[in-house]
C-alpha cells in the first residue's frame, strides 16, 4: 500500500473572481435570453415563463402591453458587458499566468478517448488539482462556446454596423440559431459541471476560498 499523498487545488483570486462573474452573468443571460426567445420563437416551443428572467409578465402586459421583454432585454444588455469583461479577464489571466498551458494542455484524440472510456465506465478518478483530458476538452469547449456566444450576439445586436459578420452564421436568423445552439451547449456544460462539483465538493471550496486539499485516492484503485 502506498503512502497517502495530499492532493491540493488552488485558484488565484483573479481566476475565482472572473469565474464567478462569468457564472453570474451567464445565468442572467440565459434566463433573460429565454424570455427574449419567447417573444419570437425560432423553434416550435417556448420556455416556461417561470424559469425566464425579466419581471412579471402579467404586470408588464397590464401596464403597457409588453410581454416582459423590455426588462429581459435590459438584463441581457447589462449582463453582456459583465460576461464580455470577465471572460476577457479570465482568458488574459490564464494565458499569461500559464494555467492554460500547464493544466489544460495537452489534449489529443488518443488521450481523450482513453479518459472518455474510463469516465464512461466510471473508472476515471478525479484527482483534485489535476484535469483529465475529458475535463480539459470540456473547458476548452465551454470557453469556445462563450466566444461563439459573444460573436453571434454581436451579429444579432449590430447586424448593420458589423455587416457582413452575420453572413458567417448564414445571415441574421442564422446568427440567432447559432446563438441558441451555443446557449444549449453552455447550459449542458453547466449541468454536468455542477453535477461533478456536487460529486467532488472540494472543487467548490477551492474555487471559492482559493485552496482545498484531499487525501489521494491513487492507492485505492
Amino acid at each position: 500500500m502506498s503512502t497517502p499523498e495530499l492532493e491540493v487545488q488552488t485558484h488565484p483570486i483573479a481566476t475565482r473572481i472572473t469565474h464567478w462573474l462569468m457564472a453570474l452573468s451567464i445565468v442572467i443571460l440565459i434566463g433573460s435570453g429565454w424570455r427574449i426567445y419567447n417573444a419570437s420563437p425560432i423553434f416550435g416551443f417556448t420556455f416556461p415563463e417561470a424559469i425566464t428572467l425579466g419581471g412579471d409578465v402579467e404586470q408588464a402586459l397590464a401596464l403597457h402591453n409588453d410581454p416582459g421583454v423590455a426588462s429581459a432585454i435590459g438584463w441581457h444588455f447589462a449582463a453582456m458587458w459583465l460576461l464580455a469583461f470577465s471572460y476577457l479577464g479570465f482568458m488574459l489571466w490564464n494565458i499569461f499566468s500559464g494555467h492554460f498551458w500547464r493544466d489544460f494542455l495537452p489534449v489529443g484524440p488518443v488521450s481523450f478517448w482513453r479518459d472518455f472510456v474510463a469516465a464512461a465506465t466510471f473508472k476515471l478518478q478525479h484527482r483534485l488539482g489535476e484535469y483529465n483530458v475529458v475535463q480539459r476538452v470540456a473547458y476548452w469547449g465551454a470557453l469556445g462556446a462563450v466566444a461563439m456566444m459573444l460573436l453571434s450576439g454581436i451579429a444579432i445586436w449590430k447586424p448593420v454596423q458589423t455587416y457582413p459578420l452575420e453572413t458567417l452564421f448564414g445571415g441574421f436568423q442564422g446568427a440567432r440559431i447559432v446563438h441558441f445552439i451555443f446557449m444549449t451547449a453552455i447550459a449542458l456544460f453547466i449541468v454536468i459541471h455542477v453535477a461533478l462539483v456536487i460529486l467532488v465538493p472540494k472543487t467548490f471550496v477551492a474555487m471559492t476560498l482559493g485552496r482545498a486539499t484531499a487525501k489521494s485516492h491513487k492507492g485505492d484503485v
Binding site: H64, D66, A70, S71, I73, G74, K158, V160, Q161
Partner: peptide
C-alpha cells in the same frame, strides 16, 4: 413610446 416602456432608447442595429 416603447422606450418609456423600458426598451433601450438608441436601439441602433
Amino acid at each position: 413610446f416603447w422606450t418609456d416602456r423600458g426598451y433601450n432608447w438608441f436601439s441602433g442595429i
